[in-house]
Computed example of a mutant assay.
Amino acid sequence: MKKTAYQKELVIKATQKRKGTDNNKKDVMKIQSWLTLFSIRNPISGTATAIDGDFGPATERSVKNFQSFNNLTKTGIVDQELFNTLSFGLKDAFEKPLISNNLRDLMVEVAENHLQQHPFELEIQGQSNSGPWVRSYMDGHDGSPWFWCMGFAQSILDQAASATGENFKTLMPLTYSCDTVGNTGLEKGLLSRFSKIRQDPSIIKQGDIFLIQKSRLDWTHTGVITAIKGDVIETIEGNTNHQGSRNGVAVMKRTRSYRRSKIDVFSIEPLV
């Protein structure tokens, strides 16, 4: 795999605890981030806390609440073993053994694996598009300017292609820009325009990458096509929300009408 930034999100340099001599601000912020992400999936857990890098009494209580919720000894201390439990969803999304044997099925399988772990962004120090999931998809970058839908789509492509021994960068450059991928698709003859797709829906195949067109050379959002059903595509996409925003908060499964939206499609066929 080419996109390996997620590995840094799975480790802390030393055990972190209240008034710990080895406390590290970045590690504490990682812990606070995972505690808050856990609270999004488990709102009764009482693990949401400020993400400020200070392992104070609130963080200690949040850790104890996490331990209690998971039937673990309530120490309030985070060593690597406990951090593994906190961050398990990320590791599972990127490293779960795959069972599909062709790229198109792998694209769907990998995207589903990520979806099941509820990737979600955080707001940290006033910056949206932040947190361990975003940094994993965006090669270590996060913060409000870092729209991460293409980072997510390329992470899925990278993981799936790597499972077949292929390098996704032979298909498209590593980028966070929908425009770059769209123009690459035009140059290589791999991008089908929405008008052509409406005339011949058989062009669309599962595992391909959709791009929502704003104007002829401007695309605003992307994701992975997981199924085609009548006039609708089913997708899994990052940095979206229930309204289908291009700057939402999570990875979500959506349905989109290719007859009502200007949806262009980038084919992954050269790697199949």
Rank of each mutant, 00 (worst) to 15 (best):
I156P: 02
G151F: 00
L122G: 06
G126R: 13
L90N: 03
H118A: 15
D92L: 14
D139E: 15
I124D: 00
Q127D: 12
E109Q: 09
K91G: 03
E112S: 08
S144Q: 13
A153G: 11
L98E: 00
N102R: 11
F120H: 15
S155I: 04
L115I: 04
G151C: 09
N129F: 01
P132G: 05
R104H: 10
P132D: 00
F88Y: 15
H141V: 10
F88G: 11
D142Y: 07
I124T: 03
L106R: 00
F120S: 13
D105N: 10
A111M: 02
C149N: 02
E95G: 06
H118F: 15
S130H: 05
N101F: 13
R135N: 06
E95Y: 05
L122E: 01
G89Y: 02
K96H: 11
N102C: 06
E121M: 09
L115F: 09
G89L: 09
Q127N: 14
G140I: 12
V108L: 02
F120A: 11
G151L: 01
W148E: 03
G89N: 12
G143M: 02
S144G: 12
H141N: 15
V134F: 04
S100P: 05
H141P: 03
W133Y: 13
N129V: 04
F147K: 01
S130L: 07
A93Y: 00
Q125E: 13
L103E: 02
E109D: 07
N113E: 06
Q125V: 09
P119M: 10
E123C: 14
F120I: 13
M138R: 06
K96C: 10
M138S: 07
L115A: 00
P97Y: 08
P132E: 01
F147S: 04
E123K: 12
W133A: 00
W146E: 03
Q116F: 11
N101W: 10
N101K: 15
F88K: 15
W146G: 01
L106G: 05
V134L: 06
I99Q: 12
P119N: 12
G126D: 14
P132S: 08
M107P: 01
S130I: 05
F88W: 14
V110I: 07
W148H: 00
G143P: 02
S87Y: 04
I156D: 01
Q117V: 09
G126P: 10
K91F: 09
D105L: 10
S100K: 08
V108N: 03
A111D: 00
M107A: 04
R135D: 00
F120M: 14
G89F: 06
S100W: 06
H141T: 10
P132L: 07
N129T: 05
S87G: 08
M138C: 12
E123S: 13
S100G: 07
S144P: 08
S130D: 02
D139C: 14
D105E: 11
H118M: 14
D142R: 03
M150A: 08
F152Y: 14
I99D: 09
F88V: 12
